[in-house]
Computed example of a mutant assay.
Amino acid sequence: PSLSTRLNGALALSLSTRTFDNYFELKGMVFLCWDRPSPQEQKACINKTGAFNYDSKFRGATAKPLSYLQDDKELSKDGFLLNHARVLVGSGLETYEKGKSALQTWRHFGLDWAFVDPKTPIQSGVKFCVCLKEFLPWVVMPLEVVYVHETRKANKALASFGFGSGTLQGHLLAGEERFSIELDENNQVWYEILSLSKPAHFLSFIGYPYVKLRQKYFAHQSTNAVVQHSTASQQ
């Protein structure tokens, strides 16, 4: 393993392996910061990263229902695992609108150990970083918004808002994740997280059981953040 360039305080760790009998080179980038990553350091990470690190045939897959993905043999054949959480936030249009606002301002990532720059616009094609505090350094992982979906029934109390983001080269995982908020026919508001992922770096291969536990922990804390924001100041 070799330590490569420092990007405005962010560290880029690359793995390079070569053999002479059957030459190959394996490279993976992990962006690290000792302190909370600044917007400039996040931008440096985005500038350094490349394209999506998962097959284009799975692009936008998380826009589909969970049941469809569970029956998709191609996903499991390609090594993807599903992670899903759906939690009742409350009821009524006001709660839905606050939940939508929470997603639009990245409140679902407003945690002590995980954040996204709240000024990041939720628009297809926008690249951004998820910053996670793991042990001593922060891990800075690049993604791109793949799609944004919003529906509203004019004559019914039905509405939904959600978006999906795909991992870019330099992310520890390969895959996609959707966050959505829905007001259903029973006037109930639901927050949902749906992701498909697999390891994309030797560190995540080694620690994948830990990664899966952290995904579940994030889902729990993210739900609490959305519920808190959605029910604030309600009588």
Rank of each mutant, 00 (worst) to 15 (best):
V146I: 14
L168A: 11
L136D: 02
A157G: 03
H149T: 15
E177F: 05
K153W: 09
I181C: 06
V140G: 01
G164H: 00
F163D: 02
F163L: 02
T151E: 14
L168Y: 12
M141P: 02
L173P: 01
G166Q: 04
E177T: 15
L172R: 05
L143Q: 13
S180K: 08
W138N: 02
G166S: 06
D184C: 02
L168P: 07
Y147K: 07
S160G: 06
L183W: 14
L183A: 11
L173K: 07
I181Y: 15
E177D: 11
E182H: 15
K153G: 05
G164N: 02
G162F: 00
E185W: 04
L136P: 03
L158P: 03
S165W: 13
L172Q: 06
A157H: 02
P137N: 05
W138G: 01
S160H: 07
P142H: 03
V146P: 01
E185A: 11
L158D: 08
S165L: 14
A157Q: 09
Y147T: 10
G170V: 09
G166M: 04
E185Q: 08
G175S: 08
M141L: 11
A157S: 11
E185D: 07
A154E: 11
V146C: 13
G162E: 00
F179I: 03
H171S: 07
F135M: 11
V148M: 08
E182R: 12
N155C: 08
G164C: 01
A157L: 09
R178E: 12
E176S: 10
G175M: 08
Q169S: 10
L172T: 06
P137Y: 06
F161S: 14
F135E: 10
E144H: 01
L173D: 08
W138F: 02
A159E: 12
R152E: 15
H171R: 08
S180M: 09
L136F: 09
R152S: 13
Y147M: 11
L183R: 08
I181V: 15
S160V: 05
W138P: 00
W138L: 00
G175R: 06
K153L: 06
A154F: 09
V139T: 04
L158C: 11
A157I: 01
Q169T: 10
E150H: 15
T167H: 09
A159Y: 01
E177L: 14
S180R: 12
R178H: 05
